[in-house]
């Protein structure tokens, strides 16, 4: 279950970015996940629900964009998407294939509450430390 440590890293990175922007909460974390990784999306969603607790991402949704594996022959340049099983030897010429995509494990974006903590009041331009209660 390495998905737990992956989920913790996702939350940490997203929180750091959100704090940089003085955001109050994270609503969505957009993740690009390749199929040639060892991460199982369902297990990651489950781990994320635990990892987000008590953080700026406590109500966030994890949107996972699955990136298919694409391989390309270094010699004949044939490009394929392995569907069932992975073979990294070119079926046309027998040379090794290189992986073009499918190894992604990247936070693409976050969507945050844009109410900025330190920004001046839109009405009176007064930079107040006290925050309105919703």
């Amino acid at each position: 279950m390495h998905e737990i440590s992956i989920a913790e890293s996702i939350v940490q990175i997203a929180e750091a970015k959100a704090r940089e922007q003085y955001a109050r909460s994270i609503q969505v974390i957009g993740l690009r996940l390749g199929t040639f990784t060892t991460i199982v999306p369902d297990a990651l969603q489950f781990a994320f629900e635990i990892a987000r607790q008590g953080t700026l991402a406590r109500d966030a949704r994890l949107d996972i964009e699955i990136v298919p594996m694409v391989v390309r022959c270094v010699v004949c340049e044939a490009s394929t998407q392995p569907v069932r099983g992975v073979c990294l030897i070119c079926e046309h010429c027998g040379f090794p294939l290189e992986i073009v995509s499918g190894e992604e494990l990247q936070i693409d974006y976050i969507e945050v509450d844009s109410e900025k903590e330190e920004s001046p009041c839109s009405q009176c331009q007064n930079e107040s430390q006290s925050r309105p209660m919703y």
Partner: peptide, 19 residues
């Protein structure tokens, strides 16, 4: 005033700290 969601580009590898 209701907060408006804002999208921020991150582009960070999740395993960045380990790397």
């Amino acid at each position: 005033m209701q907060p408006v969601p804002e999208r921020i580009s991150v582009q960070t590898n999740v395993l960045n700290a380990n790397q």
